[in-house]
């Protein structure tokens, strides 16, 4: 099983955020990516590591990098 930092339920609602990097975790929360809010992955980039996600009615890019800092997993 991969280490999963952001968990979503079947309705794309965030159920858990366990990002290790405190600074990026805080920034994402400040942008509105909170437990209970809806998150949708809409696209993956060239090597499928950078994700395009929607939360707080806006589009953001996030990186599911090799260190698994942000790995969004559909549960």
């Amino acid at each position: 099983m991969p280490l999963t930092d952001v968990k979503l339920n079947t309705n794309c609602i965030i159920t858990e955020i366990n990002i290790k990097d405190d600074k990026i975790k805080l920034r994402l929360m400040e942008l509105g990516m909170l437990v209970g809010s809806k998150l949708k992955v809409t696209n993956k980039s060239m090597l499928k590591q950078t994700l395009l996600v929607i939360f707080n009615s806006s589009c953001f890019t996030l990186k599911a990098d090799t260190a698994k800092n942000i790995l969004i997993n559909y549960v």
């Binding site: 600074k23 990026i24 953001f60 890019t61």
Partner: peptide, 9 residues
């Protein structure tokens, strides 16, 4: 020290 890419569209 990667923090990934965080960018608004």
């Amino acid at each position: 020290k990667s923090r990934g890419l965080l960018l608004e569209f």
